[in-house]
């Protein structure tokens, strides 16, 4: 995204929304000469990236390009295999369904997490007694180790002794085999993942809301705007950079999720709730005899998916800019 970033959008929008504010800065200012010195601020993080991410990333690529067995993993000397591992993965009959699950899992999780998170953020942004305390309490699920929260969900969704089925029974609905039928298992892990993701969306969006100056609302309240108009007229446009980054990060974290699914269903029954991330884990670490190569290949495919998402993000950003 050369030279143009969300900055001027936000500022321009702010200027536009609060009509009393001074006009936005001319766009030419953003295109000022070389700013190499700014790397001084970026140096620590750059060194840090190089130090801690380069090696694991290199390692993951290397694992996927060689034919590793347990023996060569420990002793070294795995033969170079080119793209064989990728071919193995792509031609595996499980690839198609697993990719579909990954996309459904990601799309559904993001939609619900973001919508519910946004609704809660807007609700708690109003000031009423206890609002702060309640909002802090909603974050408690984040304090729980995943093994605990995911186990609790599989407890609640158990076919025979789960509370959800007991509650359904009270209103006369037949028990659902949430975790043990191929038709429901993906839905169940999505529900748990949405629950775990809501606090993240809530916190980030809430902080975004707080950054919007209250005068803007006051001004529009004077103009007689309704709550709905205010949301679409002020909140939504001003929250755009934060919303976009929340969605992008949410996407990345969701693509990566494996522990929740692993604990709840192990990706099963029969792969019906397996995503690329759980598949990668199962191949590399969830078996007595690890297959590091294909496992790493799937991991790299996930990185490519995230890259595509990043490119889309930049496209959206830029189009926003040009509009």
């Amino acid at each position: 995204m050369p030279s143009t970033t969300e900055t001027s959008t936000a500022v321009r929008d702010q200027g536009g929304a609060a009509s009393a504010a001074p006009p936005g800065p001319p766009p030419s200012r953003a295109r000022r000469p070389s700013r190499w010195w700014a790397w001084g601020f970026l140096a620590p993080v750059t060194i840090y990236l190089a130090a801690f991410y380069a090696y694991p990333l290199y390692r993951n690529v290397e694992l996927s390009l060689r034919e590793y067995t347990v023996r060569s993993f420990v002793q070294g000397g795995a033969p170079f295999a080119g793209l064989d591992n990728y071919r193995t993965v792509l031609t595996d009959p499980a690839f198609g369904p697993t990719l579909t699950h990954t996309l459904v899992f990601t799309a559904a999780s993001l939609t619900f997490q973001f919508t519910i998170g946004m609704a809660l953020a807007l609700f708690f942004h109003q000031h009423f007694p206890l609002s702060r305390t309640l909002r802090a309490l909603i974050l408690v699920p984040w304090l729980l180790p995943l093994i605990v929260s995911a186990s609790t969900w599989s407890w609640l969704l158990n076919s025979d002794s789960g509370l959800v089925n007991a509650a359904l029974g009270v209103v006369g609905i037949d028990p659902v085999n949430w975790l043990t039928s191929p038709g429901w298992s993906l839905t169940s892990v999505i529900i748990a993942n949405v629950w775990i993701g809501i606090p993240f969306n809530l916190v980030v969006l809430y902080s975004g809301l707080q950054a919007i100056p209250t005068e803007m609302y006051e001004a529009s309240a004077l103009d007689g705007a309704t709550g709905w108009q205010r949301f679409w007229g002020i909140t939504f446009p001003l929250l755009r950079p934060v919303s976009l980054i929340t969605l992008l990060l949410g996407l990345i974290y969701t693509l990566k999720v494996f522990d929740i699914i692993w604990i709840m269903t192990k990706g099963g029954p029969t792969g019906s709730s397996a995503t690329l991330a759980t598949w990668s884990y199962r191949l590399g670490f969830g078996n007595l005899l690890p297959e590091f190569g294909p496992g790493a290949a799937i991991g790299n495919l996930l990185i490519v998916l995230a890259l595509i998402a990043g490119l889309v993000y930049i496209r959206i950003e830029r189009r926003q800019q040009l509009r």
């Binding site: 601020f41 991410y53 990185i303 995230a306 930049i314």
Partner: peptide, 29 residues
């Protein structure tokens, strides 16, 4: 701050690397 306000050349590339960095599986890290 640098990425948002100073916009150094190569900044977007760094943001991109940061995105990728998050995708490396925890166990590999």
């Amino acid at each position: 701050y640098a990425l948002a306000k100073l916009r150094p050349p190569g900044g977007p590339a760094l943001s991109f690397l940061l995105l990728i960095a998050q995708m490396i599986p925890g166990i590999i890290m």
